[in-house]
Every structure is written in C-alpha cells, then in structure tokens.
Nucleic acid binder design. Structure first.
Lengths: 167, 167
DNA sequence: CCATTTTATGCATACGAGGGCATAAAACTG
DNA sequence: CAGTTTTATGCCCTCGTATGCATAAAATGG
C-alpha cells in the first residue's frame, strides 16, 4: 500500500466519520489491513492540511480541506513536488510562470495551493504551465527566486533553459 | 539538475536541432553544465518516447512525439507513475475508472498515453479521475487487473476502498 | 559481410523518501 | 495548575530510484 493510497483512505475516513485523534485513524486503517503508526498518520494529516475543530455538538473533530490558510501542508511536500516536476521558473512584474512536463502542471499547482506560501494570490494551471500571481508586496521576482530554491534550480541554468511559454 | 529538467532540455534540443546520436546530446548538455553520460541520455530518450528517422534530406535524426505507437515509453515509467499516484482502479464493461489525488490525473493519463499499453483505445482525464476505454477484445476487467498490478494494488484492498467516483 | 559506431543493459553505488521507535513538546481536561 | 493525552520530531533503517561504468548487443555504413 502506497503513501498516496493510504492518504486517500484517510481523507475518505475523515469525510465520513467523526474522528478526533491520529490513534483512531491508526485503528481504522489497521482494521482494514493497512499498517501505519501514529507518527506516520500525523505526518499524513499534516500533508493533507487537516485541522482540528469543535463541531456543533462541541465534539472535537479532524477535518480536511478549506483550511489551507490555517493549516498549510508542510513546505517539504511542495519542495518534493517542485523538485520532481518543475523544469523552469520565470517572472515578469508580479507574474511567475512555472513550466512542467505535459500533464504535470496540476500536481504542482495543487501542492502550491495547499502550501499557503506567503505572497501567492492565486494560480492557474494549464497542461504544462502554471501562472502564479504574486502579491504586490512580494513581487514576482522574489517569489520566483523562492520557487527556484524549492525546485532546486540555479538561476543560471534557468536562464539558459529559457523557452517559449505556453500551456 | 533533476532528471525532469534534463529531459525537458533534451526535448527542447531535439525540437530545435538535427541530432542523431545520444553522444551529441551528451555534448550539448555538458556544454551547458549539465552532467550526464550516454547511458543516462539513452534512458531519457526511451522515456521521452523518441524514434530515429531519416528526414527529407536523408539525414538521420532523433525526434520526439507522435511516435508513441512505434516507440512507447518503457512500462517502468508508467509503473512508477501509477505506483505513486493511483489510489484505486475499478471497471464496468469496457470502461476503467482510475482514481488519483486531486490534480494528479493528468500525470497518470499522460504516462498512460505514452506507454501504448495493449487494449487501451483512449482516455480522458479530469481532476482526480481518469476514464479509460478498453478495446472489446481486451475488456475493462482485464485492463483494470493490469492497472492494479502496475499500481501495486491488491484487488481486495481496492474493493474495500470503494468510493464515489467523480472528477 | 565486416568493421565501426551507437545503443542497451547488468551491476554497483549513492542518495532521497518513507516509516517506525522513542521521547520531547504541545494540547487538553478536570 | 497539574496530570494525562495527543502530536511532533530527531534519529535510524530500509527500500527504491537514478546514474555511471563497462561491455554486450544492435545498428549503421561502406
């Protein structure tokens, strides 16, 4: 069972049941033959961007989605996605253009959305291109610099790899 | 420099120049400070699905794209993509529904397209769902079985993870 | 057909990701 | 506030992937 499959199952569990601790999730998963410890599930919950709330009955509950600002996924997840898929980063004024192989833009855009990175107003993903809008305060150049660092791209090589953006 | 970035650069080189050997690509890459050997570049060309043709001047040339049937990417590439992103596989008659995390369907669909797997007529990718049409000869059930094998999914766990498909 | 060039691959190594253990740190409850 | 519960994390280990080396196998050209 892969990490992706386990996280998907955790997502389903959280949507359907009232669960308040990682240990409860461990119990459910083990009952289905999915091996994982509290440490692993806690890391999964971080990557899924969950938060713990108190529902209308006053019961504590772990929920997913719609909470990326208050509980962003770890930067490590974004770094891994960018490191794996981003081929170039360029900026113009407050816009940043991120290139990926065909079909991969959405993976990076999704990870970007869930990371709640400072200075990102929003992003639009095509097939192999992501257009990211930087806040005026942050600026496209500074944001692009952080993207390159996350993707492990030297600015020099990014420049030499300049191509015609489309997506 | 990541493998993805290197392959993207190779793709660009092949689109713009007449290149006939892996050694020429090694030379170009090294000139740009990108370290790789002939063995690595040959594997890259395989994953990119390139073929060697003779152009209108009779010159040998490596080209990409539009050749997936004659030079499919290795099954290993599809296996890695499915192993990383596929969370469930289900079939109905000649249709197979593949589920991924949000935003990841295109990565798997792209790898599927380039693999030229037998019995796949076509596929459509949404955000987190891929609909694959199996040939009548192959059938959805058999194709789904191969997908599970590639993704490393037991049929039992796939059943227990049944959810509501949408994308 | 043969010599040369080029590609493909087995093997070994290095590195990164994933996950468990143990425990520190934080959160929660009474 | 203190005790208990829960989460977070440092460290370590295992496994899979990527890559280079060397060379076998295939392709090419004369």
């Amino acid at each position: 069972m892969t990490k992706t499959q386990r996280q998907h199952r955790i997502n389903e569990l959280l949507e359907r049941e009232v669960i308040s601790t990682a240990a409860q999730i461990v119990g459910r998963l083990n009952a289905e033959g999915i091996a994982a410890t509290q440490a692993t599930v806690t890391r999964d919950l971080q990557e899924l961007g969950t938060v713990k709330i108190r529902d209308e009955h006053g019961t504590r509950r772990i929920v997913v989605g719609g909470a990326s600002l208050s509980s962003p996924a770890p930067l490590d997840h974004l770094r891994r996605m960018m490191g794996e898929w981003v081929v170039s980063v360029e900026s113009s004024a407050s816009l940043v253009v991120v290139r990926t192989p065909p079909g991969c833009a959405h993976v990076v855009a999704s990870a970007l959305d869930r990371s709640a990175l400072e200075g990102v107003l929003g992003s639009v993903a095509g097939d192999d291109t992501i257009l990211v809008i930087a806040s005026e305060k942050r600026g496209g150049e500074d944001l692009a610099r952080e993207f390159r660092a996350l993707a492990g791209i030297d600015e020099v090589t990014s420049t030499s790899m300049k191509g015609n953006g489309h997506g």
